[in-house]
């Protein structure tokens, strides 16, 4: 039979209960900060790709291909182990000596810049799906380029990008688990940490899984509710010119 004694109390017993709370909270703000970077940087990169400026388009394209085609784990290791040694010696020492949570900082940056490449693509596909006729109609009434974007193109594109952005946010949230590999005690890291003291990995990883499932579920519900509210009867995708 099963040679395993369940002991669910490791999830709330002192001191582990506090660790789990701490870990879940870390997962939440780690993924939210990364997401903020991803949205701002992703939008910037996307706009770069859409400008008539050739150099900007090239840089934007290069960014996307570089960041989304290297495994996130490799990027994390690069930022954590390799990047600091590229800095001047004094700065590197200062970094290790004074930044208490270097792993956390690196995780936010790595996850943010990686997700930005994917967010950029999600926004771009929305913008590209807006028919040319919409621009023409807006311009023909005398609206300026900025007004056309603000009132016609972006609201249209956002509705198309919305499901993709939801997926990207969930991926970002789940990817935050990789931060444990550089010593960040977020949910997954905490589960492994508590297991190393108690040998109750089955309980801790089950708990971690439930945390991810529940949070994802809540996010999906919220986003699809917003999506429904934004949904417009008859918004269809067309490709003529």
């Amino acid at each position: 039979m099963l040679h395993y004694d369940f002991e669910w109390s490791v999830l709330w017993r002192y001191p582990y209960g506090g660790m789990f709370i701490q870990g879940i909270w870390t997962t939440v703000h780690l993924s939210l900060f990364s997401w903020m970077i991803a949205i701002l940087l992703g939008l910037t990169v996307c706009l770069c790709r859409m400008t008539p400026l050739r150099a900007a388009r090239f840089l934007g394209g290069a960014y996307v291909e570089l960041f989304r085609n290297i495994p996130l784990l490799v990027q994390l290791f690069f930022w954590y182990f390799a990047a600091p040694s590229l800095l001047p010696r004094e700065l590197e020492l200062w970094l290790y000596g004074n930044v208490k949570d270097l792993g956390y900082l690196v995780a936010v940056i790595a996850l943010g810049t990686y997700t930005a490449a994917r967010v950029s693509e999600a926004i771009r596909s929305g913008l590209l799906a807006v028919p040319r006729g919409q621009y023409r109609a807006a311009h023909s009434t005398g609206l300026s380029g900025g007004q056309t974007y603000r009132h016609v193109v972006l609201p249209y594109a956002l509705r198309i990008s919305w499901p993709l952005l939801t997926t990207e946010f969930l991926t970002c949230f789940k990817n935050s688990a990789l931060a444990m590999t550089i010593g960040v005690l977020e949910t997954t890291g905490t589960a492994a940490y508590v297991d190393s003291f108690t040998f109750h990995g089955l309980e801790t990883t089950t708990a971690a899984s439930c945390v991810y499932l529940a949070t994802s579920g809540a996010v999906i519900l919220t986003m699809s509710r917003i999506e429904k509210r934004m949904r417009i009867p008859g918004l269809i995708r067309r490709g003529y010119n």
Partner: peptide, 11 residues
């Protein structure tokens, strides 16, 4: 200007 496919703003 009036277009073949109307081009009303759907949202």
């Amino acid at each position: 200007m009036v277009f073949q496919h109307f081009e009303l703003y759907p949202h």
